[in-house]
Write a protein that binds this DNA or RNA. Structure first.
Lengths: 223, 223
DNA sequence: TGATAATTTGACCGGTTGGTAAACATTACA
DNA sequence: TGTAATGTTTACCAACCGGTCAAATTATCA
């Protein structure tokens, strides 16, 4: 056989597993840093330490590589939201969600940037995932939050925008890392900014979602 | 003279002004949607309604076009932060900053995405601006916030992370627009999401920054 | 071991991309 | 009006990019 190309054979050889692993690791490195169009197969091949035709032996096209990478990473990426537990203590659940998301921004910034690049440029390759699985998961968790608010366990608020706020504030530390570093200055070389961010964000959301008889001051939704 | 190319002549002709304007508008459209490497001069030329060599008559290289665009847009982009007024009422100032940033996400999403693309990919073209003018401006405003906190006008908090939180939550609606739309669903076609976001964010930050004797519940900064 | 399947690579191809050369067209202005 | 400066376009180039091919190398296992 000349072109087994992974999918055609039922059993995956040891080499196939290893090489596909290597390739996806390199692809994550390159795609997350340059976006899809900004990345070249040669770059990925170099990072993966193999020749371009060798890459294309395992993934027929650049798109196939990107697709495989997204599929592989998306599940893990959504895990923190899945863990969101309706039975738990609302404030503790929200705080723990923030903490988990910040940990991921710290430990898996490339994954965050991969999706950021994709969504920022109109999500041409993952639109279906956004409108399907992602929306369904968010809908489910938004319902949980709504229930909590109705039961008076947290302040009444739009659950979708709460989730957006948690996503954006936490992922900011991965996606806009160079800006964060530039503004905080060189001295902030370690991971200290993540601890500071955790302190700030947990306080912001916990206090901001505290149940209150009256809104603490008048505000309008008009912009 | 054969190649005046804008910079070489002191006086700009009417045609130069007009064409450079057209080109930068087109460049904003294309660069913000595809990032620097993902954009081609041909694309920009088509959007600008002129031939590629004609573009290159006004801007010698793709980089020069990008640079000119950034320079032109950066000032406007930082205006809301500059308006942040130390003499004003702290809560009103913060709320007004959030509102202004959300208005910009709604009215100038391309500008937001232009910077997001740039920063996301390591800010290769604007690192100096981040470490220079941007950092100085943020330092100055952070000091204002710190003063407010010390005077007991708002809760004690890390002013830098407060600014990051406002940036990320508001710009999210421009940068991740497709994701926001996908999650909220088709029925949310108009600008309603911006009003909902304004309501949510003003409440979150205002209540979250309310002065409080005791933190409303225990929390640690550890992640 | 030897034959067969799986893996790897150098050479190459057509299309795209950033950019140039030079001829042509238009404008400004004495 | 004439002419020099300014503006525009067609044709083109070299480098790059995604992808193919066939030949060479290595692993598997009867």
């Amino acid at each position: 056989m000349v072109l087994p190309r992974a999918a055609k054979t039922q059993r995956r050889t040891r080499i196939q597993e290893e090489k596909e692993e290597q390739i996806l690791e390199a692809a994550l490195e390159v795609f997350s840093a340059n976006g899809f169009r900004g990345s070249t197969i040669d770059q990925i091949a170099e990072v993966a330490g193999m020749s371009k035709p060798n890459l294309l032996y395992y993934f027929r096209t650049k798109e196939a590589m990107h697709r495989a990478l997204i599929d592989r990473v998306l599940d893990t990426w959504l895990d923190p939201l899945r863990e969101f537990n309706a039975e738990g203590n609302p404030v503790a659940e929200i705080r723990s969600y923030i903490r988990r998301k910040l940990e991921m921004a710290r430990d898996f910034p490339r994954e965050s940037r991969l999706f950021a690049n994709e969504v920022l440029q109109g999500a041409p390759h993952i639109e279906d995932e956004l409108k399907g699985p992602l929306k369904e998961l968010v809908d489910e968790k938004a319902e949980v939050i709504r229930t909590w608010a109705k039961a008076g366990k947290i302040a009444k608020c739009d659950p979708y925008h709460l989730i957006f706020a948690i996503w954006s504030t936490t992922q900011h530390y991965a996606d806009f890392d160079v800006q964060v570093r530039a503004v905080l200055g060189q001295e902030n070389a370690g991971d200290g900014r993540f601890e500071d961010a955790a302190r700030f964000l947990e306080r912001l959301f916990v206090d901001g979602l505290q149940v209150r008889e009256q809104p603490s001051s008048d505000y309008t939704g008009e912009i």
